[in-house]
Each structure stands twice: as structure tokens, then as C-alpha cells.
């Protein structure tokens, strides 16, 4: 259940009052079906904009995005975007939040068990009737993940999904995400500025430049999953990536 994704020469500028503000500069990427890649770059460099283009929420000024052989022109349930904030609807129960996609597409009838399964998958089975304000930050993010996964997306776009969580919760959720990805096999695109997170989760790390974003370097991470943070290969890759981003750690020497 996945599709390949091809980003071809995508450039974009926002029209601001002071003139155009270029955010993406000729980005090209080929992402094979079922792989997991991370987009890494300074904040505000346009990573999130690229995800919105892949989701189809907006269209790029130039270039094409091809998902599963067809150009992306509008949002669709095969490409689901999960946001940095859980953005659960506060007026709906957790169950109804997770049911959003199926309900909106009139596919819910007779398939209610899918919602329960998705909640079990993220270990929120007991919170179906809770309202979002009753959840902790990590639980809300897991509910948001369930809301995305229940649509069985072939491409899952994650926009810094763990960015606002504490370190321990984040580590737990990274492991869960990895397990879910192994089980369901979607094509994953993760936007993050946490180098370690990118290295733990993805097969490839794409390092983007400051705005307007260009592809600076692409790193292949060939270590088997699940990975250890203190794996020497991961540590040296981390230093390499930080150097590429212009932040060579003081006192350490790039391997």
C-alpha cells in the first residue's frame, strides 16, 4: 500500500507586498514507493511549503509533483498530511476526530471498526470518547497519527509531528511511528529539523539550504532498523549532516 513520489523542478515564490519572496528553488527528488525520507533544513526554509504542495493543498508556481504516476492537482486521501500541532477538532471526541476522513468521504458506514483498530494501533483504545482537551500532548499527537493512518494513505506526509513534545515522549513516538511504518508500508516524507530524528527514522536524509531552499546534499542511511542513537555510523553521519547545514559541532571533527 504505497506509491512512489516524484518532485520535478519545483520552484515557488510567495507574493508579498514588498515583492516576490522565493521559497523553493528547483527542487527535484525521486522517492521510491514504500521508502521513508526526511527533509532537513533550517526553519523557515520552505520545507513545510513543499509538503503542502505534495499534499495538494496548494500548487507550486513551477514544476510538477507526480504521485503514483499522476500529477498532483488537489488534496486526496492517498496523500495525508499530519501537522506539527495535533490540530484535533476540539469539539469532536477522539473517535470522531479519527473518523473525520472516512466520514467526509462518506465511507464510514459499516467500517466503524477501522476507527477502533486505528485507535488501538496508537494505544488510545480507552480514549475513544474523550475530548482533545483531556489528552496530553503526546496522546493528542498519537490521535492525530491515527486520524491520518485510518485513511490508509499511500503517502504519509509528516510536518515536524513531534516538534513540540518533550524529549521522552518524542523518543517513544519515534519508535511507534517506525513500527507502524513497518506494518503498513506507506511512503513516508518527514519534515524535521532534528538531525537525530531524521537519522533514526529514514532511509534517506535530504538536506535543504536556507531560503530559497535547494537540495544541498542527500545522505543514504544504510543501517538496519531499529537504529541506536550511539551507533558510530549514525554518530558520524550526524556530524556530517550538521556540517552540511553549517553547524559543525565544536570540539568534534567531522569523520
Amino acid at each position: 500500500m504505497s506509491m512512489d513520489l516524484s518532485i520535478r523542478n519545483v520552484s515557488h515564490s510567495f507574493a508579498l507586498q514588498g515583492g516576490p519572496l522565493p521559497v523553493l528553488d528547483d527542487i527535484s527528488l525521486d522517492i521510491p514507493a514504500g521508502s521513508f525520507i526526511s527533509l532537513l533544513g533550517p526553519s523557515g526554509c520552505g520545507k513545510s511549503t513543499l509538503l503542502r504542495f505534495i499534499a495538494g493543498l496548494e500548487l507550486p508556481g513551477r514544476g510538477d509533483i507526480i504521485a503514483g504516476g499522476a500529477p498532483v492537482r488537489a488534496p486526496g486521501p492517498s496523500r495525508i498530511l499530519a501537522f506539527q500541532d495535533a490540530t484535533l477538532f476540539p469539539w469532536a471526541t477522539v473517535w470522531n476526530n479519527v473518523a473525520t476522513g472516512l466520514a467526509a468521504r462518506h465511507e464510514l458506514k459499516g467500517r466503524e471498526s477501522l476507527i477502533d483498530d486505528a485507535l488501538e494501533l496508537v494505544r488510545l483504545g480507552g480514549f475513544a470518547k474523550a475530548y482533545p482537551h483531556q489528552l496530553s500532548g503526546g496522546m493528542a499527537q498519537r490521535a492525530a497519527l491515527a486520524r491520518a493512518l485510518v485513511n490508509e494513505p499511500q503517502i504519509l506526509l509528516l510536518d515536524e509531528p513531534f516538534g513540540k513534545l518533550d524529549a521522552l515522549t518524542r523518543m517513544g513516538l519515534q519508535e511507534e511511528l517506525l513500527a507502524i511504518w513497518k506494518r503498513t508500508g506507506f511512503t513516508g516524507v518527514l519534515v524535521t529539523h532534528d538531525v537525530e530524528e531524521a537519522l533514526l527514522l529514514s532511509g534517506r536524509v535530504v538536506v535543504l539550504s536556507d531560503r530559497p531552499a535547494r537540495v544541498l546534499r542527500i545522505f543514504d542511511v544504510q543501517r538496519p532498523l531499529p537504529r541506536r542513537r550511539d551507533d558510530p555510523a549514525i554518530v558520524s553521519l550526524r556530524i556530517e549532516i550538521l556540517t552540511a547545514l553549517g553547524h559543525a559541532p565544536a570540539g568534534e571533527v567531522a569523520a
Binding site: 495538494g56 501537522f83 473525520t100 476522513g101 467526509a104 485513511n151
Partner: peptide
């Protein structure tokens, strides 16, 4: 955006 990405009209 959340609703649109899941195909809500």
C-alpha cells in the same frame, strides 16, 4: 487543511 487533506468537500 486537515479536513481537505483527507478529501473533505
Amino acid at each position: 487543511d486537515v479536513a481537505r487533506t483527507m478529501g473533505a468537500g
